[in-house]
Design a binder for these strands. Structure first.
Length: 733
DNA sequence: CCTATCTGTCATAGG
DNA sequence: CACCTATGACAGATA
């Protein structure tokens, strides 16, 4: 079990790097306080076979590689992080299309207006292209969808319980006995070394560590990815204003179109929107350079992007001719389906006018209870009745992305997304280009979301599992290889050494043995390491294998023997030189790799001087530390590479979720258009007792809780609208 | 010669 | 306490 210190020193560091790379701010505390495995362990995965092993238990290996790879629950970790990123990327817009469907009105040819006023059923002529939507079904699916979101959130929370640990425990160890004792010896050794190898002192001006440099570069990349054109803010301001706030209450259908949303947009929401858009910028900058300009250099004054208003020539609206002039804004009184309104129409029934049916068609009772007054009538057309409506509030959906922008984003993201095949893309485009956004329910969220989610999770899990499997296979292969050249072969050389005398050893052989686990071919077995060009064969002397590995000493002439001796001398490490100088009677390999008991046993076999014993102990210490350093560096490299891969995965996920979000926004806008046109059609067909149409500035439609549609005066509708405006505000405080 | 990188070593922390 | 591993830092070697 790893201590919390590990969390703080490693997990936090790596996570910070990760977040910096992708330019995303995530609540790190969630991870620090969770019971997830430490990031280092998780990220390392099977490569954590390099973590501590009891060396003296590894008789058959030189360094303990490949033994007992720790099993890491990668799925748990990746799932949690994926969920977090996706939830975060979903941003404030959590409006499944099922909720949007609650807006739909459909024509029931044989039905009549249900509820308290059957005789005054609202007449509505057949409107083309609308599909049936059943109210109760909507309700069920809404709740299900909400539950799904909350479950995701709960999953996130479930993996981050508070940790009760002792952070203050510190083990203060001042013991330095052996090190101090050895220091004098080491000084002597260094003196000897200087005599042996007359190396020239050289100033090391830049002691930079490779891993650090790499990490720094990655950080820079992430930061540069954050940059964006200067004109960007002006262009996206409309979007940030348009996207509904995430903090809105679960009853989305009530507040979905509430004008309050824009007014109460928190800075955090804006920041999130900003980050999302910047993410899109990153993706585009990375992969679709040309398209990005099309998207983000859109005219700042684009009416569709700055303030949502239906253009008169919108295809949907061409059928509704009566109130073309009033279509300029639908910003008022968007508090549809608000439960608070239910009681009002009944209480003030005296002012209500029963709707006069002009034909046999009626409205379906899809709308639960709402006030449609002013929904499609801009304040400037409402006359005096609108004076009490307060300041004009921008349409929360009004600033939705321009259709062209939406298409652009969608297409670009589709192009970016690897896991998104062309069939899916074309299907999506067809659906969004079609007038019938109603089909979104069956083909899109949450079903499409869940499906894409599943594919994403499967891909991510498969990638992680593949990496883990490849890493484990690498570890196992290295393990077997090391086992093949372990102590058994080492003992083969013992005869030769002892026959040659006290200084007989084969340093090159040890190099070869140590090299085995770092064979580049094995590294290339890890797919994510293939592109790494660094040489991580730490101990491999390039020529040692060819020339020094198979020395035929007896068959060589004297001159070549001397040459070879010189070559061997050059290949020997400093400790090996020291050992030879001190006439240590066994190999450094034995000194370093033997278990303690056998090592002591070996020492007891020989009469060694104090200097020899000290040197042997230092050789052992240094040799072990050398291997530890190699392991450490390899681990560090693996960590960085894994982080790099994780960043790529997260960026892909983020791009996909952003694309889905944009598509939701687009479908939502289509729904709004349909509701608008239907409202106008219904209102335009209403006639008073004299057979004259009602004035939109004086009357408005309102849906009651029982499904009936009421025609109420504007003043009453505005009062109700204001009442609904205040409630969400109060709730948030 | 300068620089970046690799590698070994030391000191230290911690298991 | 002995022994071990991990790791940051440093320095020499090397490309």
């Amino acid at each position: 079990m790893l201590s919390l210190k590990k969390y703080l020193t490693e997990g936090l560091l790596q996570f910070t790097i990760l977040l910096s790379l992708i330019g995303v701010r995530v609540d790190v505390d969630t991870y620090l306080t969770s019971q997830l495995p430490p990031l280092r362990e998780i990220i390392l995965g099977p490569s954590s076979a390099y973590t501590q092993t009891q060396f003296h238990n590894l008789r058959n290996t030189l360094d303990g590689y490949g033994i007992h790879p720790k099993s890491i629950d990668l799925d748990n970790y990746f799932t949690a992080r994926r969920l977090l990123s996706q939830v975060r990327a979903l941003d404030r817009f959590q409006v499944p299309t099922t909720e949007v469907n609650a807006w739909l009105v459909h024509r029931d040819p044989e039905g009549s207006v249900s509820g308290s006023q059957p005789s005054s059923g609202l007449a509505l002529e057949s409107s083309s292209g609308l599909q049936d939507v059943t109210g109760p079904d909507n309700g069920v699916r809404e709740s299900e969808t909400e539950q799904g979101f909350s479950e995701d959130l709960e999953d996130l929370g479930a993996v981050a319980p508070p940790v009760s640990g002792d952070l203050t425990k510190e083990d203060i160890d001042l013991g330095a006995g052996r090190e101090i004792f050895d220091y004098s010896h080491r000084q002597k050794e260094q003196d000897v070394d200087k005599e042996l190898a007359d190396g020239v002192e050289q100033e090391d001006t830049w002691p930079g560590e490779g891993a650090e440099v790499l990490a720094r570069n990655l950080l820079v990349d992430g930061e540069t990815g954050e940059s964006f054109p200067a004109q960007f803010p002006a262009d996206i301001s409309s979007l940030t204003e348009a996207v509904p706030s995430e903090s809105e209450p679960p009853g989305l259908q009530n507040n979905l179109l509430s004008p309050l949303l824009t007014g109460t947009e928190s800075p955090f929401d804006l920041e999130q929107q900003w980050q999302d858009l910047m993410s899109i910028m990153e993706m585009q900058a990375m992969e679709v350079n040309t398209s990005s300009e099309i998207l983000y250099n859109a005219p700042p004054g684009d009416p569709l992007s700055t303030n949502y208003s239906l253009a008169p020539n919108t295809p949907i609206n061409q059928n509704v001719s009566l109130h073309q002039a009033s279509l300029g804004g639908c910003s008022q009184d968007f508090s549809l389906f608000s439960p608070e309104v239910e009681s009002l129409p009944v209480a003030s029934s005296s002012t209500l006018l029963p709707l006069v049916p002009s034909n046999s068609t009626t409205l379906n009772s899809t709308f639960s209870s709402t006030n449609l007054a002013g929904l499609f009538f801009p304040p400037q057309l409402n006359g005096t009745a609108n004076d009490t409506a307060g300041p004009e509030l921008p349409d929360p959906l009004g600033g939705l992305l321009d259709e062209a922008m939406l298409d652009e984003i969608s297409l670009m993201d589709l192009a970016i997304e690897e896991g998104f095949n062309s069939v899916q893309a074309s299907q999506l485009e067809e659906e969004f280009d079609s007038d019938s956004g109603l089909s979104l329910d069956s083909s899109h969220s949450p079903s499409s979301l869940s499906s894409s989610e599943g594919s994403s999770s499967s891909s991510s899990s498969s990638s992680s599992s593949s990496s883990s499997s490849s890493a484990s296979s690498s570890a196992s292969s290295s393990f077997s290889e090391e086992g093949a050249v372990g102590y058994s072969s080492d003992s083969e050389t013992l005869d030769l050494e002892e026959a040659e005398g006290a200084v007989g050893y084969q340093p090159e052989y040890s190099k070869f043995c140590r090299m085995s686990y770092q064979d580049p071919s094995q590294l290339s077995c890890l797919p994510y390491l293939e592109h790494v060009g660094h040489n991580h064969t730490y101990n491999m002397a390039p020529s040692a294998l060819d020339s020094a590995d198979l020395p035929p000493p007896s068959s060589l002439k004297k001159g070549s023997k001397e040459k070879q001796a010189d070559f061997l001398d050059k290949q020997m490490s400093r400790d090996e030189h020291r050992a030879r100088a001190m006439k240590i009677p066994f190999t450094n390999d034995k000194i370093i790799n033997l278990p303690v008991e056998e090592f002591n046993e070996l020492l007891s076999k020989y009469q060694l001087s104090e200097a020899q014993l000290s040197l042997i102990r230092d050789i052992r210490r240094r040799g072990k530390n050398k291997m530890a350093a190699q392991n450490c560096r390899k681990r560090k490299l693996d960590t960085i590479l894994n982080l790099e891969r994780d960043v790529e995965d997260l960026q892909r996920d983020k791009a996909r979720l952003l694309r889905e979000k944009v598509e939701f926004l687009r479908s939502l806008r289509q729904m709004k258009q349909k509701v608008q046109s239907l409202y106008q059609e219904v209102f335009g067909r209403l006639r008073d007792e004299n057979g004259r149409p009602y004035s939109p500035s004086q009357y408005a439609l309102q849906y009651a809780g029982d499904g009936s549609v009421l025609l109420i005066p504007r003043t009453l509708a505005d009062q109700q609208a204001r009442r609904q405006e205040r409630k969400p505000k109060d709730r948030r405080k």
